[in-house]
């Protein structure tokens, strides 16, 4: 069970984000839930790539580093892309929230539904 404990803690973080997205009514809280779930997914990929006692995937010109002693570099490269794309989607969500606040004067999604038409 101990070998799975970091994965389970990461899953708890993801579930907190999902819970915020489903049950919160404030738009900023929903955006925070999306951000937390995205962090958890990035963290999960990096956890999968970790090798016990491994080195970071950088060679050195002064000492010999075996490729077998490195952590998995492929998820690192993909997560780098994923983090930046996550920032782009977060910025778009925040822009939508600011526009909705300008239109309705509140961040509460249930009150926005009452005000409609």
């Amino acid at each position: 069970m101990d070998a799975y404990l970091p994965y389970i803690l990461c899953l708890v973080l993801f579930c907190i984000g999902i819970y915020a997205v489903i049950s919160k009514r404030n738009i900023i809280k929903i955006i925070i839930g999306v951000i937390i779930a995205e962090y958890a997914v990035n963290l999960f990929l990096i956890l999968v790539a970790y090798r016990a006692g491994g080195r970071s995937p950088i060679f050195s010109s002064t000492q010999e580093i075996l490729p077998e002693a490195m952590v998995d570099p492929l998820p690192h490269a993909l997560v780098l892309t994923s983090i930046v794309i996550g920032l782009a989607t977060t910025a778009f969500l925040i822009a939508l929230a600011v526009r909705l606040y300008g239109k309705y004067g509140t961040f509460d999604i249930s009150r926005m539904r009452e005000l409609r038409g």
Binding site: N42, L43, I46, Y50, G54, V71, H76, V79, I83, V84
Partner: peptide, 12 residues
Amino acid sequence: FLLLKAPDVALT
């Protein structure tokens, strides 16, 4: 990320 030996990801 730094603890998991991913310095590039940690900076980003």
